[in-house]
Design a protein around this nucleic acid. Structure first.
Lengths: 205, 205
DNA sequence: CTTGACTGTGAACGAACGTTCACCGTATAA
DNA sequence: TTATACGGTGAACGTTCGTTCACAGTCAAG
């Protein structure tokens, strides 16, 4: 009845991913069959083997399914979140509840775990850039800042978080707040860049 | 020996956590017994029941173990981040590299994984609240919104994200943008709250 | 038409599963 | 001392697991 085997395979992978996300463990073949509407768990077995050939999931020595750990787009990972479409804030558009992607926050935000740490923001000098007091920022150490990046730096003996700007053809570096109440800083003596802000996280609840 | 029993339980939890981290799935009772040096899987069964009583892990309807975030000493999650102090953005203050907490983003942000999903924001009607176009928002479904919460709602047939306000002593509900360019919305016919925004995530890199 | 290549069904196998029971030490409490 | 609570052993049960086999239906290429 199914016309395209490809679509069926993909739908199966999504069902498995959803099971993993909801129950926190990989399903058994019977559960895959149940979730996919198969009447025989053997169909689930074949589906799993196909997904394994495609590199989308892996299996134990004992045949049990394990979530694939390698990075990639379509892989099944524990602790995944359902990623839906966009919501228009201003000019509303439908936000359908169709699973468009599955991912984990850690995986999405952090590339270099050892060099990444988190800071809590106080003060409002960056509120124009959408960074409010109480927000958390993920900072990656040792990264070379580019113009427009937001950096955490020690300037003239004090720590601050500002926008980074290096003038072309000059060694001069400016640290720009995103709030008209504050003025740009031009480091006099020393400037030590602690890291580049790679993400902002605000928790309401 | 009370203390020895406690230590054994804790060591067992750590072994289970290590198994989960290495294999990506929860062990069976036989595997727990193997990992803990038990000769009988029944010992593993009793250990699991004790851990369940302590709230350190959970089990299926079918008895299978499912991962649960073990807090405190037994770090179950792989993606732990270093949490540092605060950085003054505006009136700089020292941000020492002293580890004040260790946590995982998923664990920190998501309490009810099944009901949580992620949306990408477009439009700037909430930019006054620090939610910019391109940001991600975590939305928890089925949560009762309180005044001041930011909700994703279907109002008069269209989806939008706005601040929630319910007037005291009245059934009237207002949806407030955080941008003077937009006007508050008072739903006429229907208002369906899809969920409450529990976190905002902005990724720069 | 026939011939494959797929996809799903259904039954079957041994192995591993979760769970329960009875039993054996040892250590603590009375 | 006796009693009792606890951690571990070992065997047993019914269930579910992963896996394999043979078979039926569908579609495209020959």
């Amino acid at each position: 009845m199914d016309k395209a085997g490809d679509a069926g395979t993909k739908a199966g992978a999504q069902r498995i991913a959803r099971f993993l996300q909801e129950k926190g463990r990989m399903p058994s073949y019977s559960e895959i069959a149940l979730a996919c509407g198969f009447k025989s768990k053997n169909s689930a077995f074949k589906l799993a083997r196909k997904l394994e050939d495609l590199g989308l999931l892996a299996r134990d020595a004992k045949g049990r399914l394990i979530p694939k750990a390698i990075k990639g787009e379509n892989q099944l990972k524990a602790g995944a979140l359902r990623m839906l479409g966009t919501v228009e804030a201003g000019f509303p558009s439908p936000a359908e509840e169709e699973l468009s992607d599955v991912l984990s926050l850690d995986e999405m935000l952090i590339t270099n775990r050892q060099a990444t740490f988190m800071l809590k923001v106080s003060g409002d000098s960056m509120c124009g850039a959408g960074i409010l007091p109480g927000d958390m920022v993920l900072v990656e150490k040792g990264r070379q800042p580019a113009n427009g990046d937001i950096v955490v730096a020690e300037v003239d003996g004090q720590w601050t978080m500002k926008g980074f700007k290096k003038e072309k053809g000059s060694k001069d570096v400016w640290l720009l707040p995103a709030n008209p109440k504050f003025k740009p800083i031009k480091p006099k003596s020393e400037l030590r860049i602690a890291g580049v802000v790679i993400a902002v996280i605000r928790k309401y609840k």
